[in-house]
Amino acid sequence: MDFTVIANNFSYFMVGAWPNGPLGGAALTVILSVISAIAAAVIGFILGIALAMTRGAWHTGLLLFLGFFRAIPVIMLIFWMYFLLPILLDINVPGTGTVVVALSLIGGSYLAHSVHAGIRSLSVGQWQAGAALGLTRRQVLWSIILPQALPIMVPSFINQWVSLIKDTSLAYVIGVGELSFVATQVSNREMVFPTEIFLFVALLYFAFCSLLEFGANRLALRYR
């Protein structure tokens, strides 16, 4: 194996054509991951709390909505968003935006169930005690339920964020110049080193995911 191909293209792997062109490569992967992770967490919290607080038709409707995003393959959703977003918003949506929307919706749908499960794992007595103290349901949720439920949800969040990092590679299918796309570009240009290139890129992703897992677990332990 000959890893000079990595050294020769190192800056292209890391930042794409930047500063002479758009930012790409590993840097874009990180940006896509961070934005999608935050958006997915926000969606997950809102919809998860909504799942816990609703009954009847609203609850069923919400479950169906979440079920759709959990059942559709990420690639199909990226295709849909690529096609639908410009029609719905009536503006030109860049590929990066398309991917962030698709990944946040899917990640958020999975997280909503984790948030719901975390809230449900606490005993009903907590709600009743809060109500007995004269707190409204919203006050009970904020000051009694969520502080206890959060640590329970942490592992699901970490797992989902790792999935998100991996799923940013699917931006490749609509030509967003993140790490996977850049890797295929270099591989096509150089022709003879696909093994080295994809091994290197795999290790880079591995480093990102492991770093997140390790760092988040340590943080979670400290604040337990």
Binding site: S187, F193, L199, A202, F206
Partner: peptide
């Protein structure tokens, strides 16, 4: 387990499709 779970499937597929032939 750690390596295969923490790298994207897409990259693994590229590796097997493009990269494995060289090996």
């Amino acid at each position: 387990l750690s390596l295969f779970r923490n790298t994207p499937l897409l990259i693994q597929l590229f590796f097997w499709y493009f990269g494995s032939t060289a090996l």
